[in-house]
C-alpha cells in the first residue's frame, strides 16, 4: 500500500499552547481531493496551516515523506487592497522561492507566470489592478499564484466564500481540471457540504476538538452529517 503524502501521528494542533484539535491521526494519499469541513472555529484552517508549516504541531508529529512542494491559496479578504499590484504581479509572487537576481533582470519566469494565468482562465487579467478584480477573478489569480510555485499539493482556504453560485461552479470545475492535468493533491477548507460532494475523494471532519478522515461517500452520508450537525437530515 502506498505511503501517505502527508501524515499526522497523534498530533495536537493549535495556536500558542492552546490546542484546537487533539489526537489527530490521519494520512492524506497522493493525488487525493480532500475537503476539510466543519463548523466555524472547529479547526479547519488550523489543520491546513499546520500542513503548510505555518503552525507547529503542539504534540505528536506531522510527517511529509518526499517533502512535497505546497501552493497556498489564502482567503482572498486577507490580502490588503492598498497594494498597487497587477494580477501579473500577484501571480509572479509564486515564483519567488529564492533570491534570484539574474532571473529578475532577465525576466526568465515570465513564461511560467503567463502559463499559470492562462491555465486558470485569467490570461486577460494580467495587466489589470488586482484590487479592482471581482471575487471570482481574484480567486483565479490566487490559484494561478499558487500554481506558479509548481506545487505537488494545492492548499485552499475557503476559496468559494463570498462568490456567486455560477462562479463557484466554474472554480470547482477549474480545480478538478487542474488536479487531473497537473496530478495535484488538493486540500480545500470549506463550509459547504453538498456542492463539492462529487469532487472530494476524501473528507476530514473537524468537530469538537477532533479531526476524523474517511472516504467522501462515507463522510458525507446522511448519518454522518446528522452527527456533525446534531440534527436529523
Amino acid at each position: 500500500m502506498q505511503e501517505p503524502l502527508i501524515r499526522f501521528r497523534h498530533a495536537s494542533l493549535g495556536y500558542g499552547r492552546v490546542p484546537v484539535l487533539a489526537g489527530v491521526d490521519l494520512g492524506i494519499p497522493a493525488q487525493a481531493f480532500v475537503g476539510i469541513l466543519g463548523h466555524n472555529g472547529s479547526g479547519k484552517t488550523t489543520l491546513l496551516k499546520t500542513v503548510l508549516g505555518l503552525l507547529p504541531c503542539l504534540k505528536g508529529q506531522l510527517v511529509c515523506p518526499g517533502a512535497p512542494r505546497f501552493g497556498y491559496v489564502p482567503q482572498k479578504e486577507r490580502l490588503d487592497p492598498i497594494y498597487p499590484l497587477t494580477a501579473y504581479d500577484v501571480t509572479a509572487m509564486g515564483t519567488w522561492r529564492r533570491f534570484e537576481l539574474l532571473a529578475r533582470l532577465r525576466g526568465t519566469r515570465r513564461a511560467l507566470v503567463q502559463r499559470c494565468l492562462t491555465d486558470c482562465g485569467a490570461a486577460g487579467l494580467a495587466s489589470k489592478a488586482y484590487r479592482d478584480l471581482s471575487g471570482g477573478q481574484k480567486q483565479r489569480v490566487l490559484i494561478a499564484r499558487a500554481l506558479a510555485a509548481e506545487p505537488q499539493v494545492l492548499a485552499l482556504d475557503e476559496p468559494l466564500a463570498g462568490i456567486d453560485i455560477t462562479t463557484q461552479k466554474a472554480l470547482l470545475k477549474l480545480l478538478q481540471e487542474l488536479k487531473e492535468r497537473r496530478r495535484l493533491t488538493i486540500l480545500m477548507v470549506s463550509h459547504r457540504v453538498q456542492a463539492e460532494k462529487e469532487l472530494f475523494s476524501h473528507v476530514i471532519w473537524c468537530d469538537e476538538g477532533r479531526a476524523e478522515m474517511g472516504g467522501a461517500e462515507e463522510m458525507l452520508g446522511r448519518g454522518k452529517l446528522g452527527d456533525v450537525f446534531r440534527t436529523e437530515l
Partner: peptide
C-alpha cells in the same frame, strides 16, 4: 531595490512567503 521582492512578499502575504520557504 535589490530586495524589493522579499520586502514586498513578507509585507503583502507573510504566510505565502513562509509556504515558499522564505
Amino acid at each position: 531595490f535589490l530586495f524589493q521582492r522579499e520586502f514586498l512578499l513578507v509585507s503583502y502575504d507573510r504566510d505565502m512567503a513562509l509556504t515558499l520557504g522564505r
